[in-house]
Design a protein around this nucleic acid. Structure first.
Lengths: 122, 122
DNA sequence: CTGTATCCTCAACGATACTG
DNA sequence: CAGTATCGTTGAGGATACAG
């Protein structure tokens, strides 16, 4: 019998990885292909990306859709349950933006480049 | 110049570690001693706990207060800024609880033992 | 393009002992 | 009790090559 002591423990197990919240964040704006995701997640390798997607799939947050065609095309999207994680990701985005502003005011040399090219292209 | 593409990236850098959100969660209910924290965070070693606390301190979320006495006593608490992270931790707790319920309904053998002994003692 | 399989590296973590 | 130092382990993640 697995035991938790706080709700947050379960949350961290599922989206506590280094990249998962970010992946969900990107998928909120719509289904994305593997390569698309990788392009938007700076520093992640293909191997790890796919691995994280698999785990999110197992936990019921992400759905994988294969188009039978050549060349291959695969899209990942959020399940209805995955969409509920929106709540978390959303506050994380907001808080993060404020954090960046705060640090800029303190003189840190950082910048937030809002990615334009995300909504709908392909 | 450090570049971010989404607000959430900054958030993950700061509280994306394995334990940090949990630590903040525990500190919301009030200042805690090192040993107290360790007791509530199952599976963390003292070394890592202190390390994470130091990082949270550097990022301005946590304050360290040393009582000059023997035996030594140190308490950690949230700064005003740390308290703002409440928003994130709070949804994570809520979502986690719902996640546990959901999985219980699906037949998983898990349980959430709400820690009684947390608010005020000592 | 998507995904698997290897190999390899490095940093995070655990355990322990020790200091104040 | 709080914290540091050291050593050893392990596993996550990177790089690359290759298959469908």
């Amino acid at each position: 019998m697995k035991q938790y002591h706080l709700g947050i423990e379960a949350t961290l197990e599922i989206i506590g990885g280094k990249w998962k919240a970010l992946i969900i964040c990107l998928l909120i704006s719509g289904a994305k292909r593997t390569s698309e995701l990788q392009r938007h997640i700076h520093g992640i390798s293909q191997k790890v990306l796919i691995q994280q997607l698999r785990e999110l799939e197992e936990d019921g947050l992400v759905r994988r859709h294969v188009y039978q065609q050549m060349p291959p095309k695969v899209e990942y999207s959020l399940t209805e349950y995955g969409v509920t994680a929106n709540k978390i990701v959303d506050v994380m985005c907001t808080w993060g933006k404020e954090n960046i502003k705060r640090r800029q005011c303190q003189g840190e040399d950082i910048v937030l480049l809002e990615d334009e090219s995300m909504g709908d292209f392909e």
